[in-house]
């Protein structure tokens, strides 16, 4: 691959990850609907995962698996496995966080009959 194209990819992958993260954070901060806040957090998590995995990528590396093809082949470069293990944990925990957040949303809707943050804040308990 051309090195100039690869340079562009450099900005592309990091830029996309940061942009998606910021879009999700914007949604979580600005939107009034509680479900939209949870969606924003989920989008932000996706961008963050992409950022961490992209940090561990090595040019020309293969996946960190010692298969027969790798052991007999000539390419001896592997990408960094540590960020991948980190993101593996983060995705599973992120699902648990989303499930608990959504159950809180259902419970709030059962109690107040609305999901708008302002209306929920104005009600007296």
């Amino acid at each position: 691959m051309d090195s100039s194209l690869f340079q562009l990819l450099n900005y592309g992958v990091y830029g996309t990850a940061i942009l998606v993260m910021l879009i999700g954070l914007y949604g979580a901060l600005v939107k009034k609907s509680l479900l939209k806040v949870v969606i924003g957090l989920s989008v932000m998590e996706s961008g963050l995962n992409l950022l961490i995995v992209a940090l561990g990528y090595l040019k020309g590396g293969t996946a960190p698996i010692f298969s027969e093809g790798f052991l007999n082949g000539s390419n001896k470069i592997m990408v960094d496995p540590v960020p991948q293990a980190l993101v593996l944990t983060a995705i599973v925990i992120g699902f648990g966080v989303t499930a608990v957040a959504l159950s809180l949303v259902i419970r709030l809707y059962r109690h107040h009959g609305t999901l708008n943050i302002d209306e929920i804040r104005n009600l007296k308990w």
């Binding site: 690869f6 900005y11 990091y14 940061i18 910021l22 954070l25 592997m78």
Partner: peptide, 24 residues
């Protein structure tokens, strides 16, 4: 925040061996 993150990560570079290679 985006400016800070962008300058940080574009300096690191994509696909370079920038981590301490000892751990890996």
């Amino acid at each position: 925040l985006g400016f800070y993150l962008g300058t940080t990560f574009f300096n690191i570079g994509f696909g370079d061996p920038h981590f301490a290679n000892g751990v890996k």
